[in-house]
Amino acid sequence: MSKLRLSFLLPLLAFAVLALFGAIALYSTLSGSRDPAQLPSVLVGKPAPQTTLQRLRQRDQNNDNSVTLTEFRGQPLLVNFFASWCAPCRAEAPALEMISKDITIFGIAYKDRSEDTAEFLQQFGNPFQAVGMDIDGRNGIRWGVYGVPETYLLDRNGVVVLRHAGPITRGIIENTIMPALEDLGS
């Protein structure tokens, strides 16, 4: 009989374990130590998605009104998703300006209007070689962008090496992006 009793206790024990897990997961989500949105990019190690975008009209204007990712092949490339409506994007502008001396940056304006993007660049500086307009965010989906700003480092063959979600800071440039870039150079 005691063995029988024990087997009737099993569902409760199993539930207790599951509930404990749920509580811990919820607690860490609430306390901010865990962010369900921050998944590693599945793109790392894979070629970046094909991206052809409407080009934002800029000072060094040529007549071609679309811009393709493949144009930048042959050199390492930083792809930066940003938007004029996003505050952290303003915060990362100086850092991007700094790193633009070491690497070409392709900016993708995510869910933004061209006028606003142009104004944003005028106000906070334009570190980008070219800016493509991802007006409906479809390219963002293809890249797996969770939110702006998000930055990807591509090697000379267009393969994604690194992904950083959130604003770029001096520390991230020094500790993450530059080392990865040096690895690519060697």
């Binding site: 009737f8 569902p11 409760l12 539930f15 509930a19 749920g22 919820l26």
Partner: peptide
């Protein structure tokens, strides 16, 4: 997540007590 806390509490009572009764 804050709503999750409430549902988790409901879940604890709604499943925990019946399973204890079951045992």
């Amino acid at each position: 997540p804050a709503r999750g806390v409430f549902v988790l509490i409901i879940l604890l009572f709604a499943v925990g007590i019946p399973l204890a009764l079951y045992a």
